[in-house]
Amino acid sequence: MAISTILIIILVILLIGAVPTWPHARSWGYGPSGLLGVALLVVIILALMGRF
């Protein structure tokens, strides 16, 4: 259970960092944060199901 908690924390930090707030990242749109959000959602679902 500790590995899934650490992975969730890392994905949350990456999700916050992927939000396009810098001028050079505004043209990226929400692609990077959207992909990390989906990955975080999958990890949370797997952790709740007890498979991860």
Rank of each mutant, 00 (worst) to 15 (best):
G17Q: 06
I6H: 11
S27N: 06
S33F: 01
L41Q: 06
S4K: 06
L40P: 03
A39L: 13
A25H: 09
V43H: 05
V19K: 05
I13E: 02
W22E: 12
I8E: 10
L48R: 12
P20S: 05
V19C: 04
V43R: 02
A39N: 01
L15V: 03
H24G: 01
L14S: 11
M1S: 15
S4N: 08
R26D: 02
I9T: 08
G50R: 04
L11A: 10
I44E: 05
V19S: 02
S33Q: 11
T5C: 07
G37N: 02
V12W: 05
L7C: 13
S4L: 04
R26G: 03
R26I: 10
G50C: 04
V43D: 05
T5Q: 13
T5G: 14
I9S: 09
G34P: 03
S4F: 02
V43K: 04
P23A: 02
P23N: 03
G37F: 01
L36Y: 02
L35P: 02
S27P: 00
A47M: 05
L48Q: 14
A18N: 12
G34R: 02
L36N: 02
L48G: 07
Y30N: 15
I6W: 08
R26C: 01
G31N: 05
S27K: 14
V12C: 12
A2W: 02
I13S: 09
I10W: 07
A39P: 00
A39H: 00
H24N: 07
L14W: 09
T21V: 12
A25S: 13
G17C: 06
G17P: 01
G34H: 01
I8L: 13
T21R: 10
A18W: 00
P20T: 03
I45A: 15
V43L: 11
P20I: 01
W28A: 11
V42T: 13
G29C: 08
V19I: 15
P32S: 05
V42A: 15
S27R: 11
L7Y: 07
L35M: 11
L14D: 03
L40M: 11
G31K: 10
W22Y: 08
L46K: 08
L7S: 15
I3M: 12
R51M: 07
L35R: 07
Y30P: 05
L15I: 00
R51G: 01
